[in-house]
Design a binder for these strands. Structure first.
Lengths: 246, 246
DNA sequence: GTTGCTAGTTTGGTCGTACCATTTAAAAGG
DNA sequence: CCTTTTAAATGGTACGACCAAACTAGCAAC
């Protein structure tokens, strides 16, 4: 609960933004810590000496930024929370959606990113993680044959999802959260491309086999061979992208 | 101008979000193209069969996302615009501010990114660009000696700015816009770290010399030596970060 | 005493109206 | 034809009312 009045009235013309900035500053300077809640809208209305609509607009903006979470009812209100990485990802995804990126550029970036991640993962990750990654790639291959035997095309989405999880896990194995965030952001931003490889039976099998190979070489601590596998993966992906564009 | 009613009324309880989503969808599907403007708030109020406050909240959210720009007066309103990379950067910056990242992790990511970019820049950029980069690093060194001779500490900010420009130029030389965006986002997100190297005279000189060396090896088309230079740069940066943490 | 229901309070969500400030465009005046 | 004045369009703010959801406390039933 806020005892003293940490906010003050604002000028006209841009009151909403002023208020949003004041509250944001209060949050970022830890005047209001995570988990705590802002005063109610009507209370803020009094503190800022303004109308309730302005307060609501400011709060909406902060909610959009991911700084607060809003609950209804008694004990409801605007609760300060940790900004999640999905906020960044969605922002990036929106940007990319509007700018119509050349798929080859995306592919190139992803390849570079994968190479860096793999190199660092081999260097930093412990044996258990590497074995877990290997196990997951084996499971991917098993699921693939199972799905193909049953002609269960609906399971292809599950395979695509597993593929994403593998990428995230690999990023986590670097021990550096930044890589995981970027990977998550890229996945959200280019969700459409992640599944193309699993639509074509031929590419599908090759991709799964490639993952297995990569994981084996990561587990074996063979950076150069792992990178070669990744290179092969992207050669394949680019071919696949070209085909679907015809 | 919107002729037909592309929006429809919404349920209660979360009308504002519904409206924001509908408008966002309309923008992303090019029902409303960049440069065009949304109907006025009062017009939207009629189309959505809702109150004006709700419309305003939805519009505020879209503005926060960077999808629209709002102008006052007649012929004012919400104009659809291209999402700028700064929106992504600000989102990232906010996230990083709240999460107190280990500087070493940031440094590690930046190093990986620089390596990827340099490799690609050597492969893709034309001779003219490489010479321009080289020229800029030479200018950086000249400015450095000039500033040190005059003991002009205020110019150190200019040096930091030039350092950023060099990074952006290098990213552009990859021919892949994704790298430039990521670089811009990282610079905005970690603006504090970019200047630390230029605060200490010793590191400052070494950094400028290192840039020159890197640019020379890029111009000479020597990927391995360029990467070695970058490695040296980050060894230095990490030492510098350690020192300022003491 | 414990459980379960009910009424009341808090708080966000919505609606409507009125008025102000700014910007543009049209009308008036020279 | 140019300048000035006026009007209209539009976002920005304020106030007031009511609804819906969620929590609280008290009361009733077991």
């Amino acid at each position: 609960m806020i005892k003293e009045q940490i906010f003050h009235p604002v000028q006209v013309g841009r009151a909403g933004e002023d208020i949003a900035l004041q509250i944001e500053a209060a949050i970022l300077s830890n005047k209001i810590v995570v988990g705590e809640r802002l005063p109610s809208e009507r209370e803020l209305q009094n503190q800022f000496k303004t109308g309730r609509g302005v307060i609501r607009e400011a709060i909406k903006a902060l909610k959009q930024k991911g700084l607060i979470e809003i609950r209804k009812g008694a004990k409801g209100g605007a609760y300060v929370k940790q900004v999640e990485v999905t906020n960044v990802s969605e922002s990036l995804a929106l940007f990319l959606k509007q700018h119509q990126i050349d798929p080859q550029h995306i592919s190139e970036f992803r390849e570079s990113l994968d190479c860096m991640i793999t190199t660092l993962a081999i260097a930093h990750a412990d044996v258990a993680s590497k074995q877990e990654l290997l196990g997951k790639t084996i499971r991917l291959n098993e699921m693939l044959v199972h799905a193909e035997n049953n002609d269960d095309s609906s399971n292809m989405e599950v395979l695509g999802e597993l593929d994403r999880e593998l990428n995230i896990m690999l990023a986590q194995m670097t021990g550096n959260p930044v890589f995981e965030w970027i990977m998550r952001a890229m996945q959200l931003g280019f969700s459409s491309y992640d599944y193309t490889l699993y639509e074509n039976p031929e590419f599908r099998r090759a991709t799964a086999a490639n993952w297995l190979e990569t994981a084996q070489q990561i587990a074996a601590g063979e950076p150069l061979r792992a990178l070669a596998s990744i290179g092969a993966h992207y050669t394949m992906l680019n071919k696949c992208i070209d085909q679907s564009n015809l």
